[in-house]
């Protein structure tokens, strides 16, 4: 419980600093000090870039496209910073911009793939073996590296197979550790709906990933009944 409180306090503190920077940038823009406003906004970029890139990566998986999506989101946030209201934390407001941008890109990619036959995979994804060859080996054993790459590929493929809303909820809630209330604000859903999506997403992930690789087996997750005496 103490850890939860600490995390909540840290989040509040982060939000307060974000609001301060956003106010300053807005004021500078209103005064016409646009270049200075851009420089001040750099701090905001520094604070949120990594998290934004991670979210975009779970959606897009193609590093070049991730780069573009994150750049676009920051640019959009800067240009529209005056429409930002403190009712929503900057982090939530910005994440909403980012997620919407990523979804647009995913849809555009699906449209492209309907008409264009990709050469190879074409999706930025590569086979585990190719990934292994592309990357310097961190493990002493090539088998272990290959296995790890396969597990990642399995996981990301399973996340890709989730419906749009479920994927968004899993990424923001499970991978990024946001509270249900925040995820609801980011996706413009009710908290109850977020919980339903999360419940379905976890169930789907367990089914897609299979017990033997991902789940410990202690809980016998594939059976839907009382499992221990």
């Amino acid at each position: 419980m103490a850890a939860t409180d600490t995390a909540s306090f840290a989040r509040q503190e982060r939000a307060a600093v974000d609001a301060l920077i956003a106010d300053e940038v807005s004021a500078l823009l209103a005064r016409g000090d646009r270049v200075e406003a851009g420089e001040r906004f750099a701090e905001m970029v520094e604070r949120h870039q990594r998290r934004a890139t991670r979210i975009a990566y779970y959606y897009l998986r193609d590093p070049a496209e991730v780069d573009e999506a994150v750049q676009d989101a920051f640019l959009k946030a800067f240009v529209n910073i005056r429409s930002f209201r403190e009712r929503l934390h900057f982090e939530l407001w910005f994440t909403r911009i980012l997620v919407n941008g990523c979804l647009d890109r995913v849809k555009a990619r699906a449209r492209r793939n309907r008409w264009i036959v990709p050469a190879g995979d074409g999706d930025g994804h590569c086979e585990p073996r190719e990934e292994l060859e592309r990357r310097p080996a961190l493990d002493p054993s090539p088998e272990a590296t290959l296995l790890r790459a396969e597990r990642r590929a399995d996981l990301l493929a399973a996340v890709d197979r989730l419906p749009e809303r479920q994927r968004a909820v899993v990424v923001l809630s499970q991978f990024e550790g946001h509270a249900t209330r925040d995820v609801a604000a980011m996706l413009d859903l009710t908290e109850a709906t977020v919980r339903v999506h999360l419940f379905r997403a976890i169930r789907s992930l367990r089914r897609l990933l299979g017990a033997e690789h991902w789940f410990t087996g202690k809980s016998e997750p594939r059976t839907d009944g009382a499992t221990h005496a």
Binding site: L29, R34, A42, V45, R50, T53, Q71, F78
Partner: peptide, 20 residues
């Protein structure tokens, strides 16, 4: 990440200059 930040800042500076 470093390259991405550089690009973001370049685009923001350009947008700021264009607005002004």
């Amino acid at each position: 990440h470093v390259r991405q930040r550089r690009r973001i800042m370049r685009r923001i500076q350009r947008a700021a200059a264009r607005q002004g």
